Amino acid sequence: MREAVNLAQRLFIDSDGHVHPVVTMFDSNGEQCGPEDAVSVVAGTEGRWFVLDLSEFGEGVFQ
């Protein structure tokens, strides 16, 4: 299964099909931002966290 990120809904789907909330988005300067400027995100919950570089997702990123 392919991973995907939906920034508008603040969701990340991992390769196992589990859905995790996107909790923070960062722009190219490392500042917190909204979906339109995000280049990386942190997603997850209690004990399972993901730091995601959005450039690695190509068309798997939805805004």
Rank of each mutant, 00 (worst) to 15 (best):
N6D: 15
N29H: 12
V22M: 05
V22H: 01
R48E: 15
G17L: 12
S28A: 14
D14E: 07
L54H: 09
F57P: 03
E59D: 15
R2K: 14
V61A: 07
D14W: 10
A38F: 03
T24K: 14
D16C: 04
N6Y: 05
T45I: 04
V51P: 00
F26S: 08
C33E: 08
F12E: 05
G47S: 04
C33L: 11
F62A: 02
P35I: 06
D27P: 10
V42A: 04
E56K: 12
F12H: 12
N29E: 14
G47P: 09
G58I: 05
E36F: 05
L52G: 03
Q9S: 10
V23C: 05
F26R: 09
F57N: 02
L7Q: 09
M25T: 07
L7N: 05
Q63Y: 07
P21V: 01
G44V: 02
S55N: 13
G34V: 07
L54I: 06
F57S: 04
F62G: 00
S15V: 07
E3T: 08
S28G: 01
D14L: 08
V42H: 02
G34K: 08
G30E: 08
F12L: 09
V42I: 15
L11Q: 15
I13F: 02
W49F: 12
V23M: 04
A8L: 13
V23L: 10
T45Q: 15
E3W: 04
L7G: 08
T45R: 15
E59H: 09
V61Y: 07
V22A: 01
V41W: 01
V5T: 01
T24M: 10
A43W: 03
G44I: 00
M1A: 12
D27W: 01
L11M: 15
L7E: 06
E31Q: 14
V61P: 06
C33T: 15
R48H: 13
M1D: 09
H18I: 10
V39P: 09
